[in-house]
Design a protein around this nucleic acid. Structure first.
Lengths: 248, 248
DNA sequence: CAATAACGAGAGCACTGCTCTTGCTTTGGA
DNA sequence: TCCAAAGCAAGAGCAGTGCTCTCGTTATTG
């Protein structure tokens, strides 16, 4: 019967999930460096060689965990966005996404380090990771898109050296947004993770203590940089000459 | 002669340096994960147990490399600053420091990953690293200090939740600067490394291609965020900024 | 029902970090 | 000057790792 036919597959899926669960447990407990295939197998009551039927190498197991971690942080960002009230102001939506990323990172430091710390497998991430890896970025883009449709976005123009590149990026990730906004989004996207990584990896130790308040402020500043908050005091300036007031 | 007294010490210093050099070679070639004490010893023609006379564990060797890497990137930043012309504009000094950090990172990716990627030894960095780790930050601060002395810095005020914390941080790192500037500096400091890390760790793959121009623009934006570029900077807009929404 | 594919178990290889013991050499005080 | 103490390199060894190969067993499929 087809049930017996699916029995193998179901069993395989269950064992695969059990391996990933146990691997995630060890990852959370000891970090990626200490994650051992043999220990995972031992904990699951199987012999290490059996585990190779499910993951051809340790790096493949890690890659699976990486994909799951990208999905988890991306889902956290999307959930935070979906839970915003229907008419929440755009800066609030932005900071909600930022906050979700940071909260997930603080709750899963080793998984965060796995994806946003040093890339532990080869030099370049496997292709399977590119989709899940972009979920946070897409959430940030969607905030900007809503704001752009609503009231427009105020972002300074780009330097000439970047107009072509910004247009190209815009084509790829958000054709309905102005290139200067997309350029600001990409920068803010990376800078958001700079903030989170520095806090998580200890660079803020003995420097920043009120982490929540500081992050909230920095996230708001990023919202400003992508034009979600009108007015001045943030944003790139044209690379023009000085001339205003400050002589030397 | 007294040289014989120092002979041991000199020999020890030489062997220690040779170990670190070979370790750095393997680090650059294969990454921190593949760095092996036995391979280092083998390459140096000694037996692995002899190496433990110089570094009590693999983590201690890594810590030594971490301290050196912090010093190297800090020295790169300071050198870039020192090589600026005497009356270079402050935004140029700022971007010069940023550029130096990025260039060093691109030239030494594995060493960069060692210090700004996932912390590979225990959770918190050893105390010996806090001094060297702050050199880049101090270089950024000194740019802001010069600008502050010259023409003042225009930075928006802080939210109430952050005034005490910003005052405290200011006491610790730059008592002569206004707290809002210091808060912006800390944020920009972490965001600078967010930009570099995303480029280096592959997050920009298939997204940002013109890395130099993009980084230059982002660094200039950071200079703006810390007040180095006038708040109402309005020089002649460079070129057409298609579709950049105005406040409508 | 029989051929086939998937599977778990075990042995084994080459490698790792690290410890301990054994001699040899340099050092510094009596 | 001599001799104990300390520093040092070497080797053996332990426990652990990723990974491969073989060998029966079990489930799936023609």
């Amino acid at each position: 019967m087809s049930t017996t036919r699916g029995a193998r597959e179901r069993a395989r899926a269950e064992v695969t999930a059990a391996i990933k669960d146990e691997a995630r447990r060890q990852l959370a407990a000891e970090g990626a460096a200490k994650l051992s295939l043999r220990a995972v197998a031992r904990e699951l009551g199987m012999v290490s060689s059996a585990l190779y039927r499910y993951f051809p190498s340790r790096d493949d197991l890690l890659t699976a965990l990486i994909v799951d971690a990208y999905d988890a942080v991306g889902a956290a960002a999307e959930t935070a966005l979906a839970q915003q009230p229907a008419h929440a102001p755009h800066p609030a939506r932005w900071t909600a996404v930022c906050r979700a990323v940071r909260s997930w990172a603080l709750a899963h430091p080793h998984e965060y380090a796995l994806i946003y710390g040093s890339p532990v497998p080869g030099y370049t991430a496997p292709r399977a990771t590119v989709g899940p890896a972009s979920r946070v970025g897409r959430a940030l883009i969607s905030v900007a898109r809503d704001a752009h449709r609503g009231s427009g976005l105020a972002v300074p123009p780009l330097p000439a050296a970047l107009t072509d590149e910004a247009r190209r990026i815009t084509e790829d990730v958000a054709p309905d947004l102005p290139p200067p906004v997309v350029a600001a989004l990409v920068a803010a996207w990376s800078q958001l993770f700079g903030l989170v990584s520095f806090e998580l990896f200890g660079q803020f130790d003995r420097i920043v203590e009120e982490r929540d308040a500081f992050f909230e402020h920095a996230a708001t500043t990023l919202a400003h940089a992508v034009g979600l908050i009108g007015g001045r005091a943030e944003g790139p300036a044209p690379s023009a000459a000085p001339g205003s007031g400050d002589g030397s």
